[in-house]
Amino acid sequence: MTPGSSYLRRMLDSDLIWQFRQAPAAMLAAAVLVLMMICAVAAPLIAPHTPFDPGTLNLMDSRLPPAWVDGGSATYLLGTDEQGRDVLSTIFYGMRISLAVGVAAVLLSVTIGVTLGLIAGWFGGWIDAVIMRMGDVQLSFPTIMIAFFIDGIAKAVMPPDLREMTRFSVVILAIGLADWVQFARTVRAATMIEKNKDYTAAARLSQVSSLKIVFAHILPNTLGPVIILATLGLGVAILTEAILSFLGLGMPPTQPSLGALIRVGNDLLLSGEWWISMFPGLALVLLVLSVNIFGDWLRNALNPRLK
């Protein structure tokens, strides 16, 4: 009905942005997050080396310590690993994988959770009972175990040559399927409230179809908490992927995520080459910490009861 340009102006003028300016921790977290995302997305452009091109690797340069330690070289700022790959570059590429898996897994969880939550909340009755009990059963297992389970099934049903190729999708599927319940619960609760509000009744009197009521009226009113949960869920998803990779179930060594890098370096930790696993570990901590701080701030900022 009205030109969409005013949306942006309203958004920039909003309470949320004002609150953001009042929260230094959130601003710092957001800045770190944006920086890391840029490093991850632009890894091929800004990484000093191309660590996964065997042609550029020199085995003579393997296990070099960071530049500021004796024996370090300025070419490899954070040192090199066993195969002579630059640790800084592998971190950039690793963050790329970690973030991609995390974001994709959360999107999958959100899609599944929101859809099932809307169905359960809208229809109620036995449909609701079946969906929510399914969620309850799943919640009684640790997330990581569900991910193991899905990962194991995928391995069992796929021919060996496909396994490497589909690792990325399988890891996303495993994490995404393990984490939908919280979204479904939140959306279901909100749907049950919204569907009994008078504006829904008014829409029904105007012969608006149920599908349209659900998508145009109810869904937008349930998304606030979903956005918060999704932000916090990103941290969890990245960690879950790191755990899977660390245990050898996640990304393969040819496409290492931060977790896989830590695993590679872990074997060398006791022989003194601490930098190979320490730096990817620090990157992981920093990434998840900024996601969580930002998510926490978002939760507080959007919760009217905490104002």
Partner: peptide, 11 residues
């Protein structure tokens, strides 16, 4: 219909 609660009657 016009509802009792003017808060809940508009999205």
């Amino acid at each position: 219909m016009v509802f009792q609660d003017p808060v809940g009657s508009l999205n």
